[in-house]
Amino acid sequence: MSGRGLGTRPLPPACSRAAARGGIIAAAGLKARKYGVAGLVSARNRTAYMGSFLGDILSYSLFVFVFSRVWTAALADRIDIEGYSLSQLIWYFIAAEIPAFGFGRFFWTLAQDMKSGQVAYLASRPFSFVGYHFAQGMGKAAVDASVLAAVGAGLGLLLAGPLPISSPAHAAAALASILIAGSMQFLLQFAIAMTAFWIEDNSAFFWIYQKLVLIVGTLLPIEFLPEAARRIAAWTPFPSMSYAPARIVSSWPGGGAALSLIASQLAWLAAAVLLCQAAYRLGRSRLTVNGG
């Protein structure tokens, strides 16, 4: 018997490329599964104690109620402000607060991991530190955001009238925009949390970031900003984080304009990924592990 069995026979070039490609796809699938499981476990943990949603639901409902009163008083003697009617402004606020509330609190867990030294333990495990946190954070946040969206829809029906979603394309665009905004929330908060490698208590940076998100598009549509501020805001990621999804939900700007808003969000998302990776790489070089 010849020594050249099937196992050692070289495959034709086309087959070898296909096998390699298959291997890469399988490896990528395995990786994706790993992060998928992390996200799913986090989502399941979040749903384990349904009572824990109560605080968030109360706070979210309170803000929606207070702002519905503010807009009612502001529009007491006019039909609209900058083209937004009372109903649109209330729906705008309901939608704008979903990324802020549902995806807005990754920072505290991340900062705590940094301070407690948990980062040293996680950094040495066989997964991407950023990817693992992203999957874990988004799994939990997706549940939070879904609950808030349902509560928001109910509140909106009570306070503002019928749901402004007019077509399946409108619904799909709104969903995509909210998910991109949520992902940006994670990535930017991650980058801020990484400043703990240099400054122990970095919560002040988060407050400032949070307020910029609030002012540029959450509390008010960016059309309300003075002209100069609006022009500056266009060069920042903040309108992509609340304004874009809230605008798409509350007053459908048409397919082309919605796509343009989502494209701008995607560009900022790519920039946020790069910033996040850079912040982690720079910070990791300062990590000192002392036994334990």
């Binding site: 503010v70 502001a74 919560s203 002040a204 940076f205 407050w207 400032i208 949070q210 307020k211 910029l212 609030l214 002012i215 509390l219 008010l220 309300f224 900003l225 003075p226």
Partner: peptide, 17 residues
């Protein structure tokens, strides 16, 4: 100073509205 800036954000909101 972070908290003062935090509060000032609402002054901007009311100023604009």
């Amino acid at each position: 100073f972070g908290m003062m800036l935090n509060n000032a954000a609402f002054a901007l909101f009311w100023g604009m509205l």
